[in-house]
């Protein structure tokens, strides 16, 4: 095959501008079979460049107009999603609903039979709770919006479980404890709260969500629920609660997220508060 680096040589009638190496030789030599213009794509309107620039402009305009576009689309998709039996609209951007995030390679499943929640650290009586034991404690039901730090929000979601404050009272917090650390049976995730935050009445050890037992995908059988904060604080697959002297940054907090993750007042975001 001929190599492309051959000298430009006697290209009969290439128009001069695009190829500076073409000598302006005798343009009379013609190919009997073909019309003299050799390459129809060597000239013409630069539609390609204009298309690239137009896409860039539309992209920038989209970023600027996003607040309006998004509101319209959300209203539209919300009304479609109500009548959509395939749930495909849930896959569209801003289609609503929860998104599944896990930082672990795989998450083991825990059943009511083998689930345990250990509470230890700076406590009077380190205790292991079975799911049954947690269910026998007084239950609290809260209905709040869920706000993710990546932007999605799910309105009016019921959460139900044991107040963390009640659990802490049950095991007795030692006076030197200042913070609570949470660990998960996915083996990777962790979270932290100050003791004052943990004692709020809207922080739950959550057993039920949307009035159903908490499913595995949502962090079941037991997850943390911190109503006033971004949802990364509500650790899924909760397996350990440990009282500590100081707050230890959790998984995402070691990767730049705020430790005090109040909705609308942290992480550089101004979402409407959830409580």
């Amino acid at each position: 095959m001929n190599e492309t680096t051959q000298p430009p040589g006697p290209a009969p009638s290439d128009p001069p501008p695009p190829d500076p190496g073409t000598p302006s030789g005798p343009g009379a030599s013609g190919d009997p079979a073909r019309p003299p213009s050799s390459d129809p794509d060597s000239e013409g309107t630069p539609v390609g460049r204009r298309t690239v620039l137009a896409v860039l402009g539309l992209g920038a305009a989209g970023v600027a107009a996003a607040p309006w576009l998004q509101r319209g689309l959300e209203a539209f998709l919300g009304s479609v999603a109500d009548k959509d039996p395939t749930k495909l609209t849930g896959l569209l951007p801003n289609g609503g609903g929860f998104r599944y995030y896990s930082v672990a390679a795989s998450v083991p499943r825990r059943t009511p039979a083998d689930y345990r929640l250990t509470v230890d650290g700076l406590v009077e009586r380190p205790t292991e709770f079975t799911l049954g034991a947690l269910r026998r404690l007084p239950q609290t039901r809260l209905v709040r919006d869920v706000q993710c730090v990546t932007g999605w929000r799910v309105p009016d979601t019921p959460f139900e479980g044991v107040r963390l404050a009640d659990l802490l009272d049950a095991v007795g917090v030692r006076p030197e404890a200042r913070a609570v650390r949470f660990t998960c049976f996915d083996g990777v995730y962790s979270e932290s709260l100050t003791l004052d935050q943990a004692r709020r009445s809207d922080v739950l050890v959550c057993l039920r969500m949307r009035d159903e037992p908490l499913s595995h995908a949502h962090g079941g059988p037991v997850r943390l629920y911190v109503a006033p904060m971004y949802f990364y604080k509500s650790a899924k697959w909760l397996s350990g609660i440990s009282l500590t002297r100081d707050v230890r940054p959790g998984y995402w907090e070691e990767r730049g997220y705020d430790i005090d993750a109040w909705v609308g007042r942290s992480n550089g975001r101004d979402d409407a508060p959830t409580v």
Binding site: V47, G48, R49, R50, L53, V55, L56, L58, G59, V63
Partner: peptide, 24 residues
């Protein structure tokens, strides 16, 4: 020519789209 109009449009569109994805 060496590329048809569809190929030309695709090339230009995907180039612009990749740049927008990169920026956003």
């Amino acid at each position: 020519g060496k590329f048809n109009a569809g190929q030309k449009l695709y090339a230009a569109w995907i180039a612009g789209a990749v740049l927008v994805m990169l920026g956003t």
